[in-house]
Design a protein around this nucleic acid. Structure first.
Lengths: 154, 154
DNA sequence: TATTGTTATACTCTATAACTATA
DNA sequence: TATAGTTATAGAGTATAACAATA
């Protein structure tokens, strides 16, 4: 994308290329199930939390309640989840998987594992470990930049 | 995100965490300039192509002409580019940087280089090279998967 | 009073289809 | 006829604010 001629710039180019290719691959995979990234995130949170309220999902996804309303609308319309009255709190909504939703999340999990296999299978364990350590280092460096705020490059 | 307990799944988790943190960082940086990712892509293409038509930009960004209309609308309204009659083809529009747009792209370039430095400076050259080679390997593996189509995991 | 989730409204990105002006 | 870019329309994701129902 960025096409830099400097050494570290090229390295960052490569990382960005990976992020692009990876996200395209995941988008395609999700689309083949009739899902978007945001809706899949919601399903994933629901798998981790179990049946829960929209408020809880809003916190889990770090989006507004309004956004959850829209995502759940879409997932209900496409048959992945149900919206039912909350057993104890009559203000709240209970969001649960349909059969189809549960099956789909299981399929996504399998697809994820298969992708991981396809990416790393055959690579010597030590090499994978070193690679992962390098990435974790980058994540730490990025978080430090973020914390200190580096918007002052205008 | 995915929290897998298997070895390769964990490695993929780490890669995804990097993509999330990286894209959050870039979103913040662009937002501090009053830009979105899509609009910044357009500016980037414009820097590479020089003043050009919307049609050319549509091809460069691989989006529809309609989408370019919207992006250019936004960039004109916020003062990054100008829309002028094309010198020779009266159907077409000539998109150029404003002073502010040109200055902003230059600042983005500097910010990109600074980010690359912050991520890789201090890392032994050989280690960076090995890391980049690993990422390139993943990109190749992903492209192979994509080519063969792997949607059949339902 | 505080909380849950809605409607109302708005902005961004994306698309297809129909249409205008020009090649 | 083909091309450039528009309007019309639509859907997805995101947000804030006002409001209803309930706690």
């Amino acid at each position: 994308m960025m096409r830099y001629t400097h050494k570290f710039g090229q390295a960052l180019d490569t990382v960005l290329e990976l992020t692009v290719v990876l996200s395209e691959d995941m988008d395609r995979g999700l689309a083949s199930h009739g899902l978007t990234v945001s809706r899949a995130h919601l399903l994933w949170a629901l798998r981790q939390l179990g049946p829960t309220t929209q408020r809880t999902l809003a916190d889990a996804l770090a989006v507004s309640p309004r956004t959850i309303t829209g995502l759940v609308d879409g997932l209900v319309a496409t048959g992945f989840v149900t919206r039912e009255p909350h057993p104890t709190d009559r203000r709240a909504t209970h969001v649960s998987f349909t059969e189809h939703g549960a099956r789909t999340v299981a399929a996504l999990e399998r697809g994820y594992e298969e992708l991981a296999q396809a990416l790393f299978a055959g690579t010597p364990a030590g090499e994978v470990d070193r690679f992962v350590a390098s990435i974790e280092d980058l994540v730490v460096r990025l978080r430090n930049l973020t914390t200190r705020g580096h918007d002052g490059d205008q």
